[in-house]
Design a protein around this nucleic acid. Structure first.
Lengths: 115, 115
DNA sequence: CTATCGTACTACGTCTGTCGGAGTAAATAT
DNA sequence: ATATTTACTCCGACAGACGTAGTACGATAG
């Protein structure tokens, strides 16, 4: 199967993550599994990519973190919640996607176009 | 109008350029104008991005350059021609695009999906 | 009872493509 | 005479993704 390269997905990790936070807060490990599942194993985000995206987006005010201390064994887990600014950013990025898709497809070998 | 950000287009400049070389050799300035025209001013590639893409792709064997010395005033112009490897690369990238598009759209607010 | 697997991260350094800014230089338009 | 267009080149900076490694605990398998 063709692989999705990092340069191709670059710029979309943010909205992929935000999408999974739209309804409920979530945390790294779960989001990573959801991306894998929802993409039908076509995209497996790297841990470092995911966690550095969290840091960046929190810095930008698109998400907020809170820690659940009460897990069994004293373990803790960091949850992220989307902010209104994050929601707005997500919306803007979705629009940008539509535009970008249209542009790129003008340069893609489509049906009936010789390559 | 929404702007196409560099992170979003990243990874696609190569195929945009190769697309414009599929039928005939061309050169930087012309390709840059074609991208602008074909995208209806939605995407204006930066000169540095374009020329560094040429260098990279020639190094990778996807394009070959040759110089036209016979322009008026002794000016020269560097043309690029797509190689068979470049054509193959283009085809592969187009397939990757299709896959990537499908994946990303699972995380995009579509019709009837609340955001 | 030991080892591996799954969970849930963090840290650090590297790589690559894109970008900003500047510069060159001839041809053409005003 | 001057500005704009054509056609590049060089350099350094930046940001996002990646590779590698490490931590630490619980559950399950052998």
């Amino acid at each position: 199967m063709a692989e999705i390269s990092s340069d191709v997905i670059r710029g979309y990790n943010d909205i992929i993550i935000l999408y999974l936070l739209l309804n409920d807060p979530s945390y790294g490990y779960e989001i990573s599994k959801q991306i894998r599942t929802l993409s039908e194993d076509k995209y497996i985000i790297k841990e470092t990519t995911l966690y550095s995206a969290f840091t960046r987006m929190e810095k930008n005010g698109f998400i907020e973190s809170f820690v659940d201390q009460d897990l069994a064994g004293g373990k803790k887990r960091t949850y992220y919640r989307i902010t209104p600014a994050g929601r707005e950013y997500y919306r803007a990025k979705c629009e940008e996607w539509t535009l970008t898709k249209e542009v790129i497809e003008k340069f893609i070998a489509g049906e009936g176009r010789a390559v």
